[in-house]
Design a protein around this nucleic acid. Structure first.
Lengths: 141, 141
DNA sequence: CGTTGACTTCGAGCGCGCTCGAACTCCTAG
DNA sequence: CTAGGAGTTCGAGCGCGCTCGAAGTCAACG
């Protein structure tokens, strides 16, 4: 029997079975083929779409817009300019986020450095006036 | 009168007044000083925290955890190791997202290239059999 | 035959992060 | 004295993206 069961797909793609059915219900995924028992059989094409959807989600594209995008893709080649515009838009947004993330990383690194500096200072001053390292360590409070 | 009104802060920081009060309610912001009329007066310190909160939010830290973090910060220097651990954690997550974003960007760029190729092909084939570029340009459709 | 178990559909529910609006208090201007 | 406007508190509501669970169907097993 060709295709993958929903369980296999969920596992392989790292998405819940519930979410897979939800995506289909919402029109993000074209109706998946069903075996004679009524169970879904996902094709390679379906897997490709799922990957695409995951990528697009990651760029911040909302479900609603993904539905529209999928509809465009199914509507034929004359929708290519529009699809292009949509992707270009989310590419722009992605670039913005990437730039922000670089700032966020910088911020975190500065904070972390600062905290590490504080730690060093505290470690170096537990018994500040103990004057040189003559005494053996005593655990504090 | 010292400090900034909620309106000023909302505008300057790019956050809604509702959200500002919400943050305070949720303990993300220490209780903001109030003028004699009961209106909030945000200090420079408050602004600093707001910036920090926005940064942290951007890394994906949920509100609940931000509350905890703020509580730690107010609890004194002995919480520095814990704060450090929290920030390090979100730094890791941020790095993951940044790596994913690079893949997402690649994906989008490949798709965009592909679509642009399709467009060229379509533009070049309205009258495919027109054979070589002898005729002057005619605007299509 | 009955049980098990994996699937199906369907609608309801949830956690998050705000967002909104009603009802109230103050201050200021006319 | 009244009207307007900007702030306050409070609880309810919302949009999103799932997530869950009840109820049913079907195939295989012992």
């Amino acid at each position: 029997m060709s295709g993958y069961s929903i369980d296999e797909v969920a596992e392989r793609m790292g998405i819940s079975k519930h979410a897979l059915r939800y995506y289909e219900r919402e029109g993000l995924l074209a109706p998946v083929a069903k075996g004679s028992n009524g169970h879904r059989r996902y094709s390679e094409d379906d897997l490709g779409w799922i990957r695409t959807l995951q990528l697009l989600r990651g760029t911040g594209m909302p479900i609603r817009e993904m539905r529209d995008f999928v509809a465009l893709a199914h509507a034929g080649e004359h929708t290519i300019p529009e699809r292009l515009a949509v992707l270009a838009h989310y590419r722009d947004e992605l670039l913005v986020r990437m730039a922000q993330d670089r700032e966020r990383l910088e911020f975190l690194d500065r904070k972390l450095d600062y905290y590490r500096g504080m730690l060093e200072a505290r470690d170096a001053t537990p018994e500040d006036v103990a004057r040189d390292a003559s005494r053996p360590a005593a655990s504090s409070r």
